[in-house]
Amino acid sequence: MSQQAHSSGKTVTRSYRTGVGGAWWTALVVVTVLLGFLGRTDSGFWSGFLWSIVGFVVGSLVAIAVAGRLVPARSADEAFADLGGSGGWEGAR
């Protein structure tokens, strides 16, 4: 929730939460396979792969919990609800 001031107006940047979607599953597969290959020389592929899944899932749960605590808005409209109808959208990133 940062605010950026401009000369003509004020650009307000707000944060909001969204669902993880299919990109998370893709990241899970890619990351765990890469980490499995990295640990292949030490303990084998499947050991590194499975432990990577555990770490990735636990890290995701922690991130979701922290995001839910710090970012209460669930949509852009809810994030800018207190601003009313004035102003225009600049974009989302």
């Binding site: 950026q4 707000r14 770490g55 991130a63 959208w89």
Partner: peptide, 17 residues
């Protein structure tokens, strides 16, 4: 996992007032 999930879930939107 934490970083990717954070970037996937938390979005930022800007609005000119």
């Amino acid at each position: 996992g934490a970083a990717i999930t954070w970037f996937l879930t938390v979005k930022h939107a800007s609005r000119t007032v």
